[in-house]
C-alpha cells in the first residue's frame, strides 16, 4: 500500500459516516414528528453519501480494486474503524440527538480544517460534506437546547443521554504516531485543534440547554482499533445481510 496511514485515516472517516448513517436509517417511519422523521432520514442520506466518497477513496489508496461496497459490506467486525459512540443504539429521540450532536460538533471543525488538506481528494470531499455537516450541527444543537430547556421530562432524558454517551467522546480524537506524520505533511489537522473547537461548541450548547457535563470523565475506546461494543455485530448483520446471503451478485 502506498500510504497506509492515509488509508487508515480515510477509513475511519468513512466508517464513522457509514455506521452512523446506518443507525439513523432505523428511525425511518418511526420519528416523533413527521418533519423530524424527514430530517433524520436526510442526515442519514448525507452520511451514506459521504461514506460512499470516503470509502471509495480509501479503496483507491489501498490499490487492490476495492470500491465503497466492498469496504462497506465485506469486512469483518474487527476491521471496522468507527468510533464506538456511533454504533450505540438509537435509544429514544434524546439519545439519538445527543449522539448526533456530539459527533457533528466534532465533524464540523474537522471538515473545516480538511478543506485546506494538501490532498486534493480529501479537500474536495470535505468541501461537499461541510455544507451538509453545518446543517446537521445547527439542527442537533437546536434540538439539544430545546430538549434540555424544554420540559422536566425532556431535560431528564437529554441529561441521561449525555451521561451515557459522554464516555465515548474522547475516542473521536484518536490519533496515532502515523497520523502525526500526516499532520506534518499538511494532509490532516492535529486532533488537539479539533478537540478545542469541539469543546467550545459542546460547552456552549450544553450550557444553553441547562445540561451538566458528567463529572466522571472515565473514557471508553476501542473502535478505532477494531475492538467494538456488542452492538456493532447486530448492526453489521443487518447491513451485510444481502451481500453475505447472496455473494457475488450485482444489485
Amino acid at each position: 500500500m502506498k500510504n497506509e496511514a492515509l488509508y487508515n485515516y480515510v477509513l475511519r472517516l468513512g466508517d464513522d459516516s457509514l455506521i452512523l448513517g446506518q443507525r439513523l436509517g432505523e428511525w425511518c417511519g418511526h420519528g416523533p414528528i413527521l418533519e423530524e422523521d424527514i430530517a433524520m432520514t436526510n442526515i442519514s442520506l448525507d452520511l451514506i453519501g459521504q461514506a460512499m466518497s470516503l470509502l471509495n477513496y480509501a479503496g483507491e489508496i489501498d490499490g487492490q480494486g476495492k470500491d465503497h461496497d466492498a469496504l462497506a459490506f465485506l469486512r469483518f467486525e474487527n476491521e471496522y474503524r468507527n468510533a464506538i459512540l456511533l454504533e450505540q443504539p438509537n435509544g429514544d429521540f434524546a439519545h439519538t440527538m445527543m449522539r448526533q450532536f456530539l459527533f457533528d460538533a466534532f465533524r464540523k471543525p474537522l471538515y473545516e480544517k480538511l478543506l485546506d488538506s494538501s490532498d486534493q481528494q480529501i479537500a474536495a470531499i470535505a468541501e461537499k460534506s461541510l455544507k451538509e455537516t453545518r446543517y446537521h450541527l445547527k439542527h442537533t444543537s437546536e434540538w439539544i437546547i430545546r430538549l434540555g430547556d424544554g420540559t422536566d421530562e425532556s431535560h431528564q432524558r437529554a441529561q441521561k443521554a449525555l451521561d451515557l454517551l459522554w464516555r465515548y467522546t474522547d475516542e473521536l480524537f484518536f490519533e496515532t504516531e502515523e497520523d502525526l506524520a500526516l499532520v506534518a505533511e499538511g494532509i490532516v489537522p492535529a486532533m488537539k485543534v479539533i478537540k478545542a473547537e469541539w469543546s467550545k461548541t459542546v460547552t456552549a450548547v450544553l450550557a444553553e440547554a441547562t445540561l451538566n457535563i458528567p463529572t466522571n470523565n472515565w473514557q471508553f475506546e476501542g473502535g478505532r482499533r477494531g475492538v467494538h461494543s456488542e452492538h456493532l455485530g447486530y448492526l453489521l448483520a443487518d447491513l451485510q445481510y444481502m451481500q453475505r446471503a447472496y455473494p457475488n451478485m450485482k444489485w
Binding site: 457509514l18 432505523e26 425511518c28 460512499m52 459490506f73 444481502m242 444489485w251
Partner: peptide, 10 residues
C-alpha cells in the same frame, strides 16, 4: 433501509 444490498440502493 438497513438491509439494502449496496450503498447506492440504500
Amino acid at each position: 433501509i438497513t438491509r439494502a444490498p449496496n450503498l447506492r440502493r440504500k
